[in-house]
Design a protein around this nucleic acid. Structure first.
Lengths: 196, 196
DNA sequence: ACCCCTAAATCGAACGTTCGTTATAATTCT
DNA sequence: AGAATTATAACGAACGTTCGATTTAGGGGT
């Protein structure tokens, strides 16, 4: 048995339960039972329930660190934007729980927001702002764009698609099969607008 | 003293506390003390803590019922879209707590989601889809738009601006003074895209 | 090879606190 | 008088943490 198997089992179980019902919605008895581990292991490994939550958060937002990969050396601003949209979608597909922690921390920040969440989000936004500014400087994009607003518009479009899943299940097909179509569609709207 | 003053005081206090810390993050002792009301009144008026939460939810999403006002008889699709964006912004300005319940119920639905939240959101989306479809039919909008995706893109842009407030405080000014600029800017991006 | 010792890992029980609810009696208002 | 509201206490259940005991693994002495 791996030395860290128990630790990892706790984190993966906690990720699912905290995501589904929130930090205060899950007790450590239920959590440890679901993980098949003794209740005391939570304090032993993480210093307590809050420590476990912070480890979960750290794990969830660690995916943000690889955002630089969007910068494919010699690609154009538009390609980078598409790469970003693709990156968000892949992120949500690979980790359906991230959005819960994301919105939960943005609307009800815990003490770990400024240490874990804010830096991760800030890094991405900064990078995207640079891409937009670059596009404006090269006269690819309109020069009257506010870079930050523009970035939020783009990020909002994509993230909201996943956020609204529960409310739009009967209106559209959310299956990954449609992701490519979605990317093309959102790129189209974002670059050319909806006017004919 | 109004007969309903106590009831309203409980709802407004609960709205703030539930929004800030979630249903499970607030105890009824703290809640009743903050409202300046006896603890037994929660069960007396609402049948318990959950009942109070459901009343808060109902109150929060009641604002969605006046969405029809966007339909100014003889206005164009574009004007209706701007009216919607304006309506969202006013809604968030008037009630800074709504977004918390909105995202919380979308990512961690309680038993009241399908009764209160889903119908409210569904109604708005349906209306917006009609607007887009109408615009397409009148050849104002591109005919290759997927109406639902388009609506989500628009709603996402605006809502995400408010959702991301905590993470973008140091990047942009979120004061209402800038709302008109924001509306013009988002209308611009949404209709004409970012390309120059 | 065997035993001993230690440190880490793991366990389940118990602790004191807080939870939401309910009952009761006193008080205030109409 | 009667209704509304109060404060308080009690209830069992659940909470997060802690503690002593047990198991496990490995190294050193023989």
């Amino acid at each position: 048995m791996d030395k860290n198997e128990l630790r990892n089992k706790l984190i993966s179980t906690a990720t699912q339960l905290f995501a589904e019902r929130g930090l205060n919605g899950v007790g450590i008895r239920e959590l440890s039972k679901a993980a098949g581990v003794s209740i005391s292991m939570i304090s032993y490994y993480f210093g307590g329930k809050e420590g476990l939550y912070s480890s979960v958060l750290q794990d969830q937002f660690s995916s943000f660190e690889h955002i630089e990969e969007i910068h494919k050396a010699d690609s154009e601003a538009l390609d980078k934007i598409e790469a970003y949209i693709r990156w968000i979608i892949v992120r949500h597909r690979n980790n359906p729980y991230l959005l819960r922690f994301y919105t939960s921390e943005l609307t009800n920040p815990t003490q770990y927001f400024s240490l874990i969440v804010q830096p991760a989000i800030g890094k991405v936004i900064q990078l995207l702002v640079q891409i937009i500014e670059d596009g404006i400087a090269r006269k690819k994009f309109r020069k009257d764009l506010n870079p930050v607003d523009t970035v939020l518009a783009m990020a909002g479009m994509v993230n909201y698609y996943f956020l609204s899943t529960l409310a739009t299940q009967e209106l559209i097909n959310h299956s990954p099969d449609r992701d490519e179509e979605l990317i093309r569609h959102y790129m189209d709207i974002f670059t050319k607008g909806i006017l004919s």
